[in-house]
Simulated scan of single mutants.
Amino acid sequence: MTDRYDRALGALTGLALGDALGMPTQLLSRPLIRARYGELTWFLDAPDDNEISRGTPAGRVTDDTDQALILGRLLVAGGGRVDPRRLADELLSWEARMTALGSADLLGPSTRRALQLLAQGAPIGEAGRWGDTNGAAMRVAPVGVVYPPDPVDRLVDAVADVDRVTHDTTVANAGAAAVAAAVSAGIDGASLSEAVTHGIEAARVGATRGQYVPGADVAARIEWARDLAAASPEPLDVIYRLVGTGVATQEAVPAAFAVLAVCPADPFQACLAAASLGGDCDTVAAMVGAISGACHGYAALPPDAVATLNAANPTLNIPELAGQLLELRDRLESRS
Rank of each mutant, 00 (worst) to 15 (best):
D227W: 04
A294H: 01
N310H: 14
A219N: 08
S276V: 08
G199S: 12
A312W: 10
G135H: 05
A216L: 11
D266V: 03
D282M: 14
S276N: 06
D153E: 14
D217L: 04
V183I: 06
L277T: 05
R4V: 10
A312V: 10
P109T: 08
A174C: 05
R60M: 13
A141N: 11
A285I: 04
A174L: 03
A216I: 01
R81S: 05
A114L: 12
G246C: 03
G80T: 06
S334M: 10
A114D: 10
L106Q: 13
G131Q: 09
R86C: 00
E234C: 06
R81N: 00
E95L: 12
L92H: 08
N134C: 14
R335L: 11
A203C: 10
F268Q: 03
D188C: 02
V145E: 04
A88N: 10
F43D: 12
L32G: 00
P47L: 08
T283S: 15
S276M: 08
L309G: 03
Q26A: 15
G102V: 06
E320R: 12
T197S: 15
P314T: 08
P302N: 08
L118N: 10
A185L: 02
L92Y: 02
A285D: 04
A195G: 11
L21F: 13
L9C: 11
P264S: 13
R129H: 10
G244P: 02
G215P: 01
A77S: 11
E327Y: 13
A174E: 02
I187D: 02
P214I: 00
D66G: 01
L28M: 15
D49R: 07
R85S: 12
H198N: 00
A307T: 09
G210L: 06
A311Y: 05
S232C: 04
D49Y: 14
D132Y: 00
P142S: 08
L92M: 14
R331V: 03
D188L: 12
L101T: 09
A104V: 03
F43P: 12
V159H: 01
T283E: 08
A119S: 15
R7E: 03
M138G: 07
A252E: 03
G210E: 05
T208K: 00
V213E: 07
D282F: 14
A100Q: 14
G18H: 10
R97S: 09
Q211M: 12
G244R: 04
A229T: 08
P235N: 02
W42L: 09
P302I: 09
T170G: 01
G78A: 03
G293A: 09
P267K: 06
A265H: 12
P47K: 04
T315L: 11
L192V: 09
D63F: 10
L301Y: 04
S334V: 06
L74T: 05
T111C: 13
T41R: 15
L117K: 15
P24S: 11
R209A: 05
R209T: 03
D3V: 08
L332Q: 12
A158I: 02
L27Y: 05
L277W: 01
L21A: 13
S93H: 05
A270K: 09
R81I: 00
P267N: 07
